[in-house]
């Protein structure tokens, strides 16, 4: 493979029901850094139906070029039509780098595309940078976050990587920013469409996505049961914060799974993460250690949470939170 014919940093700009997903803007933001180092352009790939109107938003957030395939076959996400569209665009434009959000869509699409174009894919990267030899260095956690591995894909293109929502930061929208929009017609092989979408059902979830919260008060096993959780909710209300929880609390059914922080839950990085009675299993730490300021209360002074906490208090989280609630109210 002649790598030098592959140029540009591409982002799969995921949309749902016509709405560009936040992770797509975050990846466009990251792609700007990488493109600056490579002296190349940022391309956003926008797939959907009646979607071209969203292209400007991607330009405002940092894309130089939006490659848009607008077709009824791409109305809702389905593996095969989206894979065909992506592979057609890869064939046509030869991206050097391709970033995809690690959502349920991206994690379905990414591996299928990588296998079809026979290149590597590195999942859930937390750091992306350009190495000395212009290759993409993709760093990801292994074993729940304590071991880190930097992965390279030197001999195949594009260099593909997925990144979880909330890991990268989007740029402020610049409404003056200009860019180019290229429309692409995908020659679909419809005989390969084998899966039909019957319907999409929304389920009730909490109103606020914890990965977007500025302040999170997070409850762990050390808060005990219902009344302990009420103390956490009270503190959250006082600080205008959201409630999240460790896996232990979610598993006993007190808090919904969409509020779980950690490897099997969500990655969060609020300005303040307040860990109440959380010991800090490595799977949990992987989901919150990038938070701005971390306060942790735990009765075991050797608890791993204290390794990432900026302020650690050894003590009974229930008593301390109770008193803290009282003091903050007066």
């Amino acid at each position: 493979m002649e790598n030098s014919t592959y140029k540009g940093v591409y982002v799969f700009a995921e949309q749902r029901n016509g709405e560009i997903q936040k992770v797509a803007l975050e990846l466009v933001g990251k792609a700007r850094d990488l493109a600056a180092d490579l002296k190349e352009k940022v391309y956003a790939i926008l797939l959907g139906h009646n979607i071209a109107g969203q292209a400007q938003m991607l330009i405002e957030h940092g894309a130089d070029v939006v490659i848009c395939a607008d077709a009824p076959e791409l109305e809702s996400y389905l593996t095969e039509p989206y894979t065909q569209a992506m592979c057609h665009i890869i064939d046509l434009h030869k991206p050097d780098i391709l970033l995809i959000g690690a959502t349920t869509t991206g994690r379905d699409l990414g591996p299928r595309v990588s296998a079809r174009v026979a290149t590597g894919l590195t999942a859930d990267c937390t750091k992306l940078e350009i190495g000395e030899d212009k290759h993409l260095l993709m760093t990801r956690p292994a074993f729940g976050g304590n071991l880190m591995a930097t992965i390279v894909c030197k001999e195949h293109r594009p260099q593909m990587s997925t990144v979880r929502p909330g890991v990268m930061q989007s740029l402020e929208a610049d409404t003056q920013r200009q860019g180019e929009i290229i429309m692409v017609d995908v020659p679909f092989a419809t005989q390969k469409f084998k899966v039909r979408l019957v319907k999409s059902v929304k389920e009730k979830t909490s109103k606020i996505d914890i990965s977007e919260a500025k302040i999170l008060i997070s409850a762990g096993r050390g808060m005990g049961c219902c009344d302990g959780l009420n103390l956490v909710k009270e503190l959250a209300e006082t600080l205008d914060a959201q409630v999240s929880a460790s896996r232990a609390v979610v598993d006993c059914g007190l808090v919904g799974h969409d509020q779980q922080v950690g490897q099997t839950g969500k990655t969060v990085r609020p300005d303040l993460y307040f860990a109440a009675g959380i010991s800090g299993a490595i799977q949990h730490l992987a989901g919150m250690e990038e938070s701005g300021y971390i306060v942790a209360i735990n009765k075991d002074k050797y608890a791993p949470i204290f390794q990432v906490a900026d302020l650690g208090i050894v003590g009974d989280a229930r008593q301390i939170i109770k008193k803290l609630n009282d003091r903050l109210k007066n």
């Binding site: 290149t119 894919l121 590195t122 894909c153």
Partner: peptide
Amino acid sequence: PTKVHKAFS
């Protein structure tokens, strides 16, 4: 296609 460039704690 992917190789570990380095692993670190």
